[in-house]
């Protein structure tokens, strides 16, 4: 009798058509990236008779723009998966950039690798401090992360401008310039750094207990607490990780431009947030992947570079990226609709 009852366990079945539509929607960001690459290629071929895609310089420019977005977006992905947000990364970037530049400038033109290394560590330390404050506010004082990190956004911005004396801190240092503008086997160093960090964040999110707890925290905080996980420590780790990846973005900025600017990260913040959501994350938490954020960053970078390349007024990039964000949300919603209600 009991067995009979158990056999009629109800499962939600999806029709074959729906599951095909679903996998199409899952892959939409890849398809979209291919689509816009194809669009710019055809545009370049017909308008100028040259190639867009198969030119090393174009690919390098796109990938450097994407890696800037990625460095702010990688740690942010984990924070958003945990149903939090980190706005302060804009100025964790700036603070790290300024601190690194100040130390190298103080050491003079002949500053060696030791000083550069020290400056890098100090920059990372400054960014990590912002992350610690964020984590403490959210985990221990129960400040909603949107508000808490909006506060530290302002504090880190002010701190970066104050230590920089309100100006861009320009430096002359060959080691630093080599770091920011060199390449490894033809791949620009900023892209190599972003790639290694992306792999590291992917490993953390997908293959570690830390990553599982992050997903679970985004879905049901009570479940994670009841399972005996120290949620406060988990939140602090997440915000420090986010600040550090953004801080590395600041170090790369200083190295590329031989100058540290307090507002190095500000214009990228919203693109980073957009890349995470285009990549499939949700504001309510519990979903999102690093590979999604990588695609999201490349979509934005291709739009940015492609519009400039094709000679259209660059302001169209804001309109285009805005449209892509809205498409991303609509795609996400229609996925839910196809799968059916999950009450």
């Amino acid at each position: 009798m009991i067995t009979d009852m158990m056999n009629e366990v109800k499962t939600k079945k999806h029709s074959r058509g729906a599951s095909f539509a679903r996998s199409l929607l899952d892959a939409w960001s890849w398809l979209f990236l291919i689509l816009i690459l194809g669009f710019f290629e055809i545009y370049a071929q017909t308008q100028t008779g040259s190639t867009f895609l198969f030119r090393i310089h174009n690919l390098q420019s796109i990938s450097i723009a994407a890696s800037q977005i990625l460095l702010l977006g990688l740690g942010l992905t984990l924070v958003i998966v945990a149903a939090q947000i980190d706005l302060s990364i804009a100025f964790s970037t700036g603070l790290a950039a300024v601190v690194m530049a100040l130390i190298i400038r103080a050491a003079g033109v002949d500053a060696g690798w030791m000083i550069v290394g020290l400056a890098i560590l100090a920059g990372l330390g400054a960014a990590a401090a912002v992350g610690l404050v964020n984590g403490w506010l959210v985990a221990y004082l129960n400040v909603p992360s949107f508000i808490g990190t909006l506060g530290t956004y302002g504090i880190a911005r002010g701190a970066a401008l104050i230590v920089a004396g309100g100006a861009t801190v320009s430096i002359r240092n060959d080691h630093t310039r080599a770091l920011g503008n060199g390449d490894i086997l033809g791949i620009p160093i900023p892209l190599v750094v972003a790639g290694v960090l992306a792999l590291g964040c992917h490993y953390l999110l997908k293959h570690t207990r830390f990553g599982v707890h992050t997903y679970a925290l985004g879905a049901n905080r009570a479940a994670v607490e009841r399972a005996g996980v120290d949620v406060k420590k988990l939140l602090i780790k997440l915000f420090v990780l986010s600040a550090i990846t953004a801080g590395i973005g600041g170090l790369i900025y200083t190295s590329r431009f031989s100058a540290g600017a307090a507002n190095a990260g500000e214009p990228i913040l919203l693109y980073a947030v957009a890349a995470v959501f285009i990549g499939g994350a949700s504001l309510t938490g519990g979903q999102g992947t690093i590979s999604g954020t990588v695609i999201g960053a490349f979509i934005i970078a291709v739009i940015q570079f492609g519009l400039v390349y094709s000679g259209l007024p660059p302001y169209w990039q804001f309109v285009a990226v805005g449209l892509v964000i809205i498409i991303a949300v609509l795609v996400d919603q229609s996925k839910e609709r196809i799968v059916g209600d999950r009450s």
């Binding site: 599982v212 049901n220 399972a227 005996g228 996980v229």
Partner: peptide
Amino acid sequence: YQDLALADNLDPGLNLYLGREVT
């Protein structure tokens, strides 16, 4: 508990081992 204390976005295995995951 009534709310089941499950993480809806994880598979049954991870829910079974939540907090004591095997590596």
